[in-house]
Simulated scan of single mutants.
Amino acid sequence: MHRPVLPSPKALAWQGHTPTLLVVAHGSRDPRHAATVHALVRRVRALRPGLRVETGFLDFNAPSVPRVFEGLAADGVRDVVALPLLLTRAFHAKADIPAVLREASARLPQLRIRQADVLGPSPLLIDALERRLEGAGLTAGDKRSTGVVLASAGSSDPEAIAVIAEIAREWRRTGWCAVRPAFASASLPRTEDAVRQLRAEGVRRVAVAPYVIAPGFLPDRIARGARAAGADVLADVLGPAPELGRLLLARYDTAAAEAPVTAALTA
């Protein structure tokens, strides 16, 4: 007689009728990257203790996204929201992650998989950037005399570049003397060029705000550019800022309220 596969006690305790959240990070050879991702995931768990939250990496780090899906299926989990830990909708969000989810859906048809939206743009990210600048020593009273370089990793995707430029324009309206976008790769200007441009325009104080989540090769390039151009303030990466934790849950909630997209992923 064929026995039905029942959810394990672990799955019943964690999941109930709530989809599991799988945070999908890019991964890096730099150990600081994974450590920061795990710190952010711990913050999300603390914000919502009843939610099962797992982490998977596309490259370099373990566990891989396919391995996490296998473990969830083995636990009896049936509903998963896969959330890209990305600030812009570029190649990884449009191609890499959907391909991984399609493969997992085809191999593990018992899983219902939703893909959440990327994190940016969001007012919560602006709040996190402000938090990091405050942590680097700036105050609200410094805004009128301070120009900010919004330094992102960069992308060859025109949509992603346009989003960064729009974020800079919107952020400028909160009171900063100026906000200019810059990119560590694929696009121009570089961080050091944006800092020097602000100086040439007579901006008295220049701060660099990395629009990246975790340390690594490109954030280090941003920091080198800021120092080389003599920026007055260099903020930390966004990391496990409380605003990011709340934003992850907001993206999760939106995706969890939608119908499962397994059929679309396997089409």
Rank of each mutant, 00 (worst) to 15 (best):
R132V: 07
L218W: 06
A214F: 01
Q110E: 11
A35P: 05
A209C: 03
H33Y: 14
K94C: 08
D232N: 02
P98K: 05
T191Q: 01
L234R: 03
H26V: 01
A162T: 06
V195P: 00
T146S: 01
L150G: 02
L138K: 02
V212Y: 01
R102H: 07
L234T: 03
V179I: 04
A168M: 11
T139A: 05
D79E: 09
A35L: 06
E54Q: 13
T139V: 07
L124G: 09
V68S: 06
N61T: 02
G147C: 05
A256M: 10
L72N: 04
K94M: 13
D117R: 10
L265M: 06
Q197F: 04
S185N: 14
V24D: 10
V203R: 01
R48M: 05
P158I: 07
P4N: 11
G245D: 04
A140S: 14
Q197K: 09
R131D: 14
P242M: 02
F69A: 05
D79P: 02
Y211C: 02
R144H: 15
L247V: 05
Q110G: 15
A73W: 03
R196I: 01
A73D: 15
R131A: 11
S187Y: 01
P98Q: 04
G56M: 03
L58V: 12
G50S: 08
R43H: 09
A151S: 11
D232K: 00
D220K: 11
P63N: 10
R144P: 10
